[in-house]
């Protein structure tokens, strides 16, 4: 992988992958919180930018430009499944 491609990969992993990961985390957190839905929305959303910042740092700290993408499917997918399982069930039924 050329250096430029590596940088591009990390940038995309940070900004796009980071957004996707954050989205999954927040959605899952909202689903998991035992509070009233309105409260859950706010409480789950407020830490979004901490998560996103961490995702950006990971994308540039990870040992390779490909590794930068690992959290997106590995963490993001299960969290998204957990967050949206009612909607998924509706679709499948």
């Amino acid at each position: 992988m050329t250096p430029s491609l590596a940088v591009l990969s990390r940038c995309l992993a940070a900004l796009l992958g980071g957004y996707a990961l954050t989205y999954a985390v927040i959605a899952a957190l909202a689903r998991a919180l035992p509070t009233d839905p309105v409260d859950a929305v706010i409480i789950a959303s407020l830490p979004a930018f901490v998560v996103y910042t961490a995702a950006i740092l990971w994308a540039f700290a990870s040992r390779s430009a490909l590794r930068a993408w690992v959290p997106v499917p590995v963490l993001g997918l299960p969290l998204a499944l957990f967050a949206f399982w009612p909607q998924l069930l509706e679709r499948l039924a």
Binding site: A24, I42, A44, S45, L46
Partner: peptide, 28 residues
Amino acid sequence: LVIFLLMYMPAAVDSLFKGDTQAYAKAA
């Protein structure tokens, strides 16, 4: 960022209110 919180990150509204921002606003 928090000023436009739900615009930037609608994930929670999507998962708990199926993305219906009107329903969320009414509930809030």
